[in-house]
Amino acid sequence: MPTPSQQSKPAPPLGQLSTPRAAALAGVLFAILLITTMVLIRIQMPDHVEDSAQWLQSRRGALTTATVLMPFAGISFLWFIGVVRDGFGRHEDRFFLTVFLCSGLLFVAMMFVATAGIAGLVTSNNSVTDPAARTEVISFARMMVISASQTYALRMAAVFMISLATIWLKTRLMPRWLVALSYLAALVLLIGSEMSRWLTLVFPVWVLVVSCLLLARAGLIGERRDEGDRSRRLS
C-alpha cells in the first residue's frame, strides 16, 4: 500500500516537443528530399519518347533511388502540415484550414502517383520486349508523370500556399513579405505550371524558406501559440 506522502507526490512533468522547430526541421527534410527526387526524375526526363528508353536504362539506379526517397518526402511533408497547423493555436479558421489540409494531402497524393508511374516505367523497360509496345508504354507513362507532377500537384501546391498565406495574413504569425512572396509564387504555379519543368522546384524552395524562417522565429511563434491557448482556456 502506498503511503499518503507517496499518494500526494506529483507526477513528473511530461516532456514537450518544440512544435515550431520540429515543423521547420520536417520542412527542411521535405524540401531536400523533394528537390532531389524531382531533379532525378522530372528535370532530367527527355522531351522525346525515343530518348526515354535510353534514359531509363542509363539512369535506372538514380530513378530507383528517387522512388525510394519520395515516400519519406511525403512523410516529412505530412509532419510539416501537422505541426504548422498546431502553431495556429486559437487562430484557426475552419474554411482556410480545410483548404490548407486538403490541398496539402492532394499534393502528396499526386506526387506519389507521379513517382509510382516512374517506378512502373523502370520495371516495364525490361519486361516489355516488343519495341512498338515499349514505345506506347513509355509515352503513356511520361504523360502521366508530367500531368500528375505539374498539371495537378503543382496547382494543389499553389492552393496550399494561398490558404496558408491567408491564415498568416489574418493572424500575423508570419511577416508580410513572406505572405506576399507566397501569393506571388502561388500565382506563378497556378498560371505557368506547365510552361517549364523547373517550376516544379518552386514549391520545395518555398517550403525551405518557410522552414528557415520558422527556425529563426520558433520562440516567438511558440509564445503566441501558448498565449492563444491560455486565452482559450480562460474563456
Results as ranks from 00 to 15, higher is better:
P2M: 14
P2Y: 15
P4H: 04
Q6E: 14
Q6H: 10
Q6M: 13
Q7H: 14
Q7N: 13
S8N: 14
S8Q: 15
A11N: 08
L14G: 04
Q16E: 13
Q16K: 15
T19W: 15
P20L: 09
R21W: 13
A22G: 13
A24T: 01
A26S: 08
G27W: 12
G27S: 04
V28P: 11
V28R: 00
I32F: 15
I35D: 10
T36M: 09
T36D: 09
T36G: 14
M38A: 07
R42P: 08
I43F: 09
M45W: 03
M45L: 12
P46T: 04
D47S: 07
V49H: 02
E50F: 04
S52Q: 08
W55G: 09
S58Y: 05
R59E: 10
R60W: 05
A62G: 07
A62T: 03
V68H: 02
V68M: 12
M70P: 00
M70R: 01
P71R: 00
F72E: 00
A73L: 00
G74P: 03
G74M: 01
S76R: 05
F77R: 01
I81N: 05
V83E: 08
G89M: 03
G89D: 05
G89F: 01
E92W: 15
D93P: 00
R94C: 06
F95V: 15
F96T: 12
F96M: 14
L101M: 14
L105D: 03
V108I: 12
A109R: 07
M111Y: 04
V113E: 15
A114Q: 06
A116P: 09
A116D: 10
G117L: 04
I118Y: 11
A119I: 04
S127D: 13
V128L: 06
T129D: 03
T129H: 11
P131H: 05
A132L: 11
A133W: 11
R134T: 02
R134K: 09
T135P: 07
S139G: 15
M143H: 15
M143K: 15
M144H: 14
V145G: 06
I146V: 12
I146H: 10
S147Q: 14
S147Y: 07
A148R: 09
S149Q: 06
A153F: 02
L154F: 06
M156G: 02
M156T: 09
M156D: 07
M156R: 04
A157V: 03
V159I: 10
V159M: 04
I162M: 05
T166L: 13
L169F: 13
L173I: 01
M174K: 11
M174S: 02
P175I: 05
A180F: 06
A180D: 12
A180L: 05
L181D: 05
Y183S: 06
A185Q: 10
A186S: 05
L187M: 10
L187A: 11
V188M: 09
V188N: 06
I191Y: 10
G192T: 03
E194K: 01
V202D: 03
V202K: 04
F203K: 02
F203S: 11
V205G: 09
W206Y: 10
W206I: 01
V210K: 08
V210R: 09
S211R: 12
S211D: 00
S211T: 01
S211P: 00
C212Q: 11
L214T: 01
L214M: 11
L215R: 03
L215T: 00
L215C: 02
A216H: 12
A218G: 10
A218V: 07
G222R: 07
E223K: 06
E223Q: 12
E223Y: 07
R230C: 02
R232F: 01
